[in-house]
């Protein structure tokens, strides 16, 4: 027993030392809280504000400066990006479709490999593949408006006329939902509230714009239905048009509600 107590004490003292060191032996850095997902109000923006937004995106959310900085040397510097874009567009190695400076800058964000500056390609690709991710997706996830604002910022940085336009209609004017809205109790209530029936035939409503949902459970499985709500343009049923259904139901609905609606639709047979 005495041995046991001694060993126990020894182990606890050891753990205590590690704990002490982690708490007091090193400085406690409080990591920044997760970035907020910003909603843009583009309607009332001047070009200056739009460019300033671009700068914020460039230095913040876009994480561009991680690589595009003098310090790292991992990616080309962008101060002169505007000037060089003409040469780039004329270069025979250029694989993109852009025709002007703004188009080139925008394209380089979504298709970084369209032109890879010498020496900055992925190792082993002899400068054909860029190590830069498509910033419209992945963990950066910039919206169209945000990328255009970065283009505006880059044009200003080089001292050029800003040719990119502020997208007016990119963000649908939805009423800001109060964040503490109580979730709807039933699928019917949710469907009524989200006005699905305005376009679809569902729950007694007779919308004409979208597909008939009255027997949708026979045709589609749950994963398809879920995707159709989150990303309506992923696949368009025959005879219907793209871009008709709002793409932000994923943000508006609680996950519970989404599941309820999917469940409800899947059961329609």
């Amino acid at each position: 027993m005495r041995n046991f107590a001694a060993v126990l004490l020894f182990s606890l003292v050891t753990i205590g030392f590690f704990t002490w060191f982690s708490n007091f032996g090193i400085p406690q850095v409080d990591p920044a809280p997760p970035p907020k997902e910003e909603k843009l109000d583009l309607g009332a923006m001047t070009m200056e504000q739009f460019t300033a937004l671009g700068e914020r995106v460039y230095k913040g959310k876009g994480t561009c400066t991680l690589c595009h900085s003098a310090l790292g040397g991992r990616a080309p510097l962008l101060q002169e990006a505007g000037a060089i874009s003409k040469e780039r567009l004329a270069d025979e190695r250029y694989k993109g479709e852009a025709e002007d400076m703004a188009g080139y800058l925008y394209e380089s964000m979504v298709k970084p490999s369209a032109f890879v500056v010498e020496g900055f390609g992925k190792a082993g690709s002899s400068d054909t593949v860029s190590p830069m991710p498509d910033v419209s997706g992945g963990s950066v996830g910039l919206s169209d408006a945000e990328m255009k604002s970065v283009v505006a910022y880059l044009q200003k940085l080089g001292g050029y006329e800003i040719t990119v336009e502020i997208p007016k209609d990119a963000v649908p004017e939805t009423e800001e939902e109060a964040t503490s809205r109580a979730p709807f109790k039933t699928a019917e209530a949710a469907i009524a509230e989200f006005a699905c029936g305005a376009c679809h035939k569902v729950a007694g409503e007779e919308g004409e714009v979208g597909p008939d949902l009255r027997k949708i459970g026979r045709l589609r499985d749950r994963s398809y239905l879920r995707r159709s709500i989150l990303d309506p343009n992923a696949e368009i049923s025959k005879g219907f048009e793209k871009d008709q259904m709002p793409a932000d139901y994923g943000e508006q609905m609680y996950a519970k509600e989404l599941e309820m609606i999917v469940e409800y639709l899947a059961a329609l047979k």
Binding site: T179, D221, S223, Y224, R226, R227, L230, D231, A234, E235, G250, E251, Y254, A255, L258
Partner: peptide
Amino acid sequence: AGIAAPKLT
């Protein structure tokens, strides 16, 4: 049809 990640609150 792929699997979409839910957007949670």
